[in-house]
């Protein structure tokens, strides 16, 4: 089984704007001046309010959108279009309904994989995500959590250097979500790819990431950029009840404009309208 070689991702002053919806509306800047260096094998969580451009940043790495300015490089090569070294796990499973789980996962195999090797790899991945029993089921015959796991296996089938996950567990119930997080950690231990994880869940970010970056707007400047960056202490798997993480959680939430309601402990309550979700 081929082991992935985790890739370094470098964002260099990345900008992205979209054309306005109507002719008289000017271009709408979404991202500006995003610079970040991601080490091979690192897990980065990208937090931000809804519509701040988190997914756009991920899609630029995946080659589905092109940056309007600046550059993103993979191991030093600038990204131009869809790269075989990247694989995306979307927010929705996006499985082909007429294919079985196995056939859907096989879609992720890089072109030119020898058939026998591909079959073995798919069987292993399906086992890794715990779907062996459902390998011959169609997507409509399995639960949402299973479909999301199949989608994860499909991305892993590519042996990606960079795994891009766009709120992969956002639509799952709370318990399934926690299980999926642990699954992702064990997968990362087995196949250490660089992971960029977009999420709006602060706890998820702290549980999974080496570093957390927060995208947001700075007063007076259009477009979101990195407004906060922090290295998460400790090694994974982290204690979900850790007090140190709880403190970071409060800090991140306030960075996202959420009042932590800490006045009972002498922490000043900030004014401001919380935005939901975060």
């Amino acid at each position: 089984m081929p082991t992935s070689t985790a890739a370094r991702v470098r964002f260099d002053r990345v900008e992205k704007s979209f054309a306005g919806a109507s002719r008289d509306e000017a271009v709408r800047p979404v991202l500006r001046d995003v610079s970040l260096d991601v080490a091979p094998g690192e897990v980065i969580a990208i937090l931000g309010t809804s519509g701040c451009g988190k997914s756009t940043l991920l899609r630029i790495v995946g080659g589905l959108d092109a940056a309007s300015g600046g550059a993103v490089s993979l191991d030093g090569d600038p990204i131009a279009g869809i790269d075989t070294r990247t694989a995306i796990g979307f927010q929705e499973p996006r499985l082909l309904p007429w294919r079985t789980v196995t056939q859907n996962v096989a879609l992720g195999l890089p072109a030119g994989t020898p058939a026998a090797e591909g079959r073995a790899r798919i069987a292993r991945l399906i086992e890794l995500v715990g779907l062996t029993e459902f390998a011959d089921h169609r997507p409509r015959e399995i639960s949402g959590g299973m479909a999301q796991r199949a989608s994860l296996a499909r991305a892993l089938a590519r042996t990606p250097g960079v795994l891009l996950l766009d709120e992969p567990f956002g639509a799952l119930d709370a318990l399934t979500k926690l299980r999926m997080q642990d699954l992702l950690l064990s997968i990362h231990a087995a196949e250490p790819a660089t992971i960029l994880l977009v999420t709006h869940d602060v706890d998820e970010a702290l549980q999974l990431a080496d570093r957390v970056i927060v995208l947001g707007h700075q007063a007076g400047a259009p477009g979101a950029t990195i407004i906060e960056e922090l290295t998460v202490p400790g090694t994974r798997p982290r204690d979900r009840g850790s007090a140190e993480l709880a403190e970071l959680r409060g800090r991140l939430l306030s960075g996202l404009g959420i009042d932590r309601h800490g006045s009972a402990r002498g922490i000043e309550t900030e004014a401001g309208i919380p935005v939901f979700p975060y």
């Binding site: 995946g62 589905l64 869809i82 694989a87 995306i88 996006r94 082909l96 499909r154």
Partner: peptide, 21 residues
């Protein structure tokens, strides 16, 4: 469109994309 985009993200295009999705 989501399915088409997903398949494109996994390297399919042209006739292969048509046949698969």
């Amino acid at each position: 469109k989501n399915l088409v985009e997903a398949a494109r993200a996994f390297g399919l295009n042209g006739f292969a994309l048509f046949r698969t999705v």
